[in-house]
Amino acid sequence: MEKFKVNNREYTVDRLLGKGKGGYSYLVYDEKNFFVLKQIHHEPCEYYNFGNKLQAELTDYEKLKKIGIRMPKMLDVDMENERILKEYIEGETIYELVLNDKMENAYIDQMKNMCKLLYAANTNIDYFPTNFVVNQEKMFYIDYECNNYMEEWNFENWGVKYWSKTPEFLKYVEEHS
Rank of each mutant, 00 (worst) to 15 (best):
G159I: 07
T130V: 00
I94Y: 07
Y24W: 10
F128S: 06
I84S: 00
D143A: 10
Y107W: 12
K73C: 02
K102G: 08
T166D: 07
K138D: 12
M71Q: 15
E2S: 06
K102M: 14
Y26P: 03
G23L: 00
E2T: 03
G18W: 05
I84A: 00
G20D: 09
I142T: 15
N105Y: 13
Y26M: 05
N131D: 11
Y29L: 01
I40A: 04
N122S: 12
R83Y: 04
Y149H: 12
K38W: 05
I89P: 14
Y95Q: 06
Y107Q: 11
M139N: 03
V77L: 01
K161W: 02
F34H: 14
P167V: 05
E152L: 05
R83W: 06
E62D: 12
E43M: 09
V77F: 00
S25C: 15
Q136D: 15
E82I: 02
T130N: 09
N148Y: 09
I67Y: 10
L170N: 13
Y47E: 07
D78N: 01
L54C: 03
W158G: 04
I108R: 13
F35R: 06
W153L: 14
G20Q: 09
L99T: 07
F155G: 06
F50K: 01
H176G: 05
C115T: 09
I108G: 05
R70V: 07
N154Q: 04
E31D: 14
G22R: 02
V13M: 03
T130H: 15
K161G: 13
Y29K: 12
K102I: 04
L118C: 11
L37M: 14
I67T: 11
D76F: 03
T130A: 07
F140T: 04
T59S: 11
S164E: 15
I67L: 11
A120C: 07
T59K: 14
Y24C: 06
L58V: 06
